[in-house]
Amino acid sequence: MSKSKSKEIIKEFEPELLVFCCNWCSYAGADLAGVSRFQYPPNIRIIRVMCSGRVDPSFVLKALKDGADGVLISGCHIGDCHYISGNEYTRDRFDRLHSIIIQQLGIDPKRVRLEWVSASEGKRFAEVITEFTNEIKELGPLKLQ
């Protein structure tokens, strides 16, 4: 009895979010957010990739399958890519991932998100994460695992 009671007390849902950050912009942006001590929710786990173009759609699907409540892909602004056009590929691929796979699967498209954050936008990184976490909190858990 006491166990179930204590479970009821800790009821607020804390989402587990996966964030893919590109090495040159977004990861540096996250770094800057930390150095400048901008506060953002601790629900995210960052995976650093060399370019947002490295993020294969299957990574997103696997993350959702293995229990992530939301996935954020973050890269350099269009035109700023360290590898010239990597993020353009990400953008195109992401559109198709959204319209063909995520929507048809009946998963809320808000759970998968693409954002551009540059190295100087520490503040923006914190804002994006806060907003994303709040959005997923509203949607509730995906409960796939």
């Binding site: 319209s99 063909i100 048809q104 699967l105 009946g106 998963i107 409960k143 796939l144």
Partner: peptide
Amino acid sequence: LEVNPKRD
């Protein structure tokens, strides 16, 4: 169980 497709 939680996934219910909404096909286009």
